[in-house]
């Protein structure tokens, strides 16, 4: 699968002393929904702004649709829809008038206006000025603007900001539908992994301007599994610990319970059998998995060299 976005060695300095991006390498697969994650201030928006040419590139390369960005700026931007931070709307105009402005610029068919209004569920806003819209309606119109010219790539920076839980679910469904029906590649940034983990196919995690992880969501799930543990409660913890250490190597006693790293089912069954054979009463065997949010927190809480997950 080719890459829709491919960057190498992106660095960005706000001033000589303040480097906000360090050697960013991004690989966004064609047709994917790429979750770009990081806490507030990690460098997500700066990266997305660089991808869209809103910030002057200082070092590194940006390739979009297989072409270098700067020399092909106009042709590339004509195939990208974006929503950066808050929606960009002319508050004294209606939703249709706002879309007409962009329809003129992109020179797309006029019927696209009604199509995207219906798609985003704001076709009945009539003569209401966008200044009177709720935050959720503004976000929807922002998405409608981004989709108007049927782009091949959608870049959305925190599009669920300010949405209620129902709105977040609807937004997620809408993006999934767009991706599946039109094959549009979507890059969506967020500071909450839980918010987009049900949507994305690929993930990039950035922290303090450095990439901490990039790969398919499945790979992140494998990381999660490798960080799951097994907790066993027995009637003779010390005796059980010795047996567990013999069988599995690494085992610790925490709060009277034996904690082991992730084990396959055969090993768990064998261990249980050994406990029973040694007359050790087994009260409970439970698997404890770190959720993705915890992994995300771990990744963004340490520097790459200290990060145990890398």
């Amino acid at each position: 699968m080719g890459h829709c976005i491919h960057t190498t060695g992106l660095n960005y300095f706000f001033s000589k002393k303040e480097q906000v991006l360090h050697d960013i390498h991004l690989h966004v697969p064609e047709g994917s929904i790429y979750g770009f994650l990081g806490p507030n201030g990690a460098g997500k928006t700066t990266t997305l702004r660089l991808l869209l040419g809103l910030l002057r590139q200082q070092s590194g390369d940006i390739h979009i649709f297989g072409q270098p960005f700067e020399p092909n700026r106009q042709s590339i931007l004509g195939r990208i829809g974006s929503l950066i931070e808050s929606p960009s709307l002319y508050s004294h105009l209606t939703a249709r008038e706002n879309l007409m402005i962009w329809q003129k610029v992109y020179q797309c068919p006029k019927n696209r206006i009604e199509a995207v209004l219906r798609l985003t569920g704001i076709a009945d806003t009539g003569e209401k000025k966008t200044g009177q819209f709720s935050l959720g309606m503004k976000q929807r119109l922002g998405i409608a603007v981004a989709l108007l010219h049927a782009p091949r790539l959608l870049i959305l920076d925190e599009p669920t900001n300010g949405l209620d839980p129902g709105g977040i679910v609807e937004m997620r469904e809408l993006l999934r539908q767009i991706n599946q029906e039109s094959g549009i590649t979507i890059v969506i940034s967020s500071h909450l992994l839980s918010e987009i983990e049900k949507l994305v196919t690929d993930v990039g995690i950035i922290h303090r301007g450095k990439m901490q992880f990039e790969g398919p969501l499945d790979e992140l799930m494998r990381v999660r599994r490798s960080h799951s543990s097994l907790v066993i409660e027995t009637g003779a913890p010390d005796k059980a610990l010795a047996l567990a250490q013999q069988t599995c190597g690494e085992a610790r006693l925490i709060n009277g319970k034996i904690n082991l790293p992730h084990q396959d089912k055969t090993t768990i069954a064998a261990l249980n059998h050994q406990f029973v054979m040694a007359d050790i009463p087994v009260y409970q065997i439970t698997g404890k998995e770190d959720d993705l949010e915890s992994i995300f927190m771990q990744m963004t809480a340490t520097t790459p060299t200290q990060n145990p997950l890398l």
């Binding site: 106009q74 960009s88 002319y90």
Partner: peptide
């Protein structure tokens, strides 16, 4: 200032216009 007031410069500058 219409663009500054409505925070729309960023959208204008991501259109395929010189």
């Amino acid at each position: 200032q219409i663009e500054y007031r409505n925070n729309t410069w960023k959208q204008v500058h991501t259109t395929p216009q010189r």
